[in-house]
Each structure stands twice: as C-alpha cells, then as structure tokens.
Amino acid sequence: MDVKKVDHLAKRIIQVMVGIVAVLLVLIIGYILVTGLPQESIDFLFKPSQAVKAGGGIRDQLWNSIYLLILALLISIPLSLGAGIYLAEYAPDNKLTHFIQTLIEILSSLPSIVVGLFGYLVLVIRFNMGFSILSGALTLTVFNLPLLTSNIENALRSVSDEQREGGLALGLSRWQTIKGILLPRTVPEIITGVVLSSGRIFGEAAALIYTSGQSAPALNYLNWNPLSPESPLNVMRPAETLAVHIWKLNTEGLTIDADIVSAAASAVLILVVLLFNILAHYLGNKLERKLTGGK
C-alpha cells in the first residue's frame, strides 16, 4: 500500500481509538457524578458519618484522606528522590544495580492486602504504633516508593548525556549538575509520578484497612494540639479514609442509606482527585518554569 495512505490510515485509527477511550472515560465519570452528586447537599461534606442511621456525611473521612496523602507524600518523595538519583547517577552500571531495579519493580506488584498485612504485623503490632495515621502513611510509603523511585530514575536517565557533560564542562560538580540541570528538566515526569501515586493513595482501601483502621473518631477542628486524640493533626489516631469508608459501606455497612452515601462519596473522591491533579500540574509547570528559567 501507498505509504501516504498508510500514514493517513494510521492517524485515523489512532484518532478512533483515542475517541473510544475518551467517550468511555466521560461515560464512567459522568455515571459516577450523576448518580452521586444530586443525592447530597453541600453539608454532606461538613458533617460526621453515621454507623447506622441515615444522613451521615464524610467530613472526617475526607480530611483523613487528604492528611494521609500529604504525610505519605512527605515521607516518600524525599526518599524516592534520593534513591532515584542514586540509582540513575551514582550507582555503577552492573548486575547488582539491575538486580536492585528488578526488586524495586516487583515490590510494586505486591497486592495491597499483603503490604497492608506487612504494615499491620510490623508497624501496628511490633512497633506498637496502633491503628494510626502514621502506620497508614508508612504503609502507603512502602507502596509508593517503588513507583516513584522507578519513575524518577527513568526520568533522569532520559535526560541526554550532553546536558550532563555540559554541566561538568562548566566546572560544576556532579551534585551541582544534578541539582541545577538534571532535576529541573525532569520536573514534569516527577509530577506525573506523584499524581499517579497520589491517585492510588486516594483510592487505596485494602492496605489501609489493617493499618490506619476503619474507624473515624469524631474530630474537633478547633483543636490544633497534635497530641490530643480529637485533634485533626494528631498522627497517632485511627483514621478511616474516604476509600475505606466506601469499601465499608459496600461490604459490611448496615447504614440505611449506604448506597446513597457511597455514590456521593465516590463522586466527591473523583472531584478531589481531579482538583489535586490540576493543582499538581499547575504547580509543576510553575516550578519547571522557575527552575529552567522560563520557556
């Protein structure tokens, strides 16, 4: 066949495939939003949940999800950044390094329940952290590290060697080259990694059931003392997240309006993830512009 025709045909096929996916995505999001949003008024977001009675909200669960996400990212981003830099820039290119890369990648395929049980037996029981946000955040870190590390490592590797040579030729040390040249270049990729993994954190239930727990004790949002059990900032309190709440409603919930609350909570979750994605990309673009001196 004529190469021009093939070219044209390929473009068409790609467009059709993208179209199919886009339509499906819109349908799914639409379905969740349409079934969820009209069910509840805005104060759904601002009232505590109910174990049995109808009319519960998701205030504490929503906050717990966000707080847990922030903590997990605070722990896992620096760790994976360091490890990613080491593996891409400093580690010798030998069998051992390849072996380690493989290990890290298979770590990411562990089912969340296994990671959750690891967190439960080690953090909750052995280290006596109890069912707490901290246990949950550390467990999520276990999950997050492989994905983020590989992501950052690959991003650094994809920067062409000329850039490194350029930095070194200017008399910069390797560390200065990494900090001043390589990292700014990879900001968009790192942001992708962060967004993907935070999506996973938001949606994760199985790993958290055994670590941050399934109960959301009522919080007092005026109490800012991180040691008080009713303070939203306390990291040692049990904290049910939104995804765990949805899971609970769908599996063992006796709540009378479980269907409605679960549909509405799913809709809220999607909106929060959307908001977070937009924010992350916005900040990422800003950061990139600042670091690379504008484009």
Partner: peptide, 26 residues
Amino acid sequence: ATKQERRGKTVTFITAAFIIVLTFAI
C-alpha cells in the same frame, strides 16, 4: 562543591539503601 558532592552522594546512597533494605525485608 566537593563537600556538597560528598554529602549528596551519601544522602542519596542512604535513601537507596533504605529502599533496598525495605524490599528485602518484605
């Protein structure tokens, strides 16, 4: 710069080692 370089290398090595230890532990 050399000090920074050493420090950077050490810190990143520690984080990488941490992840490796964690992976092995699991």
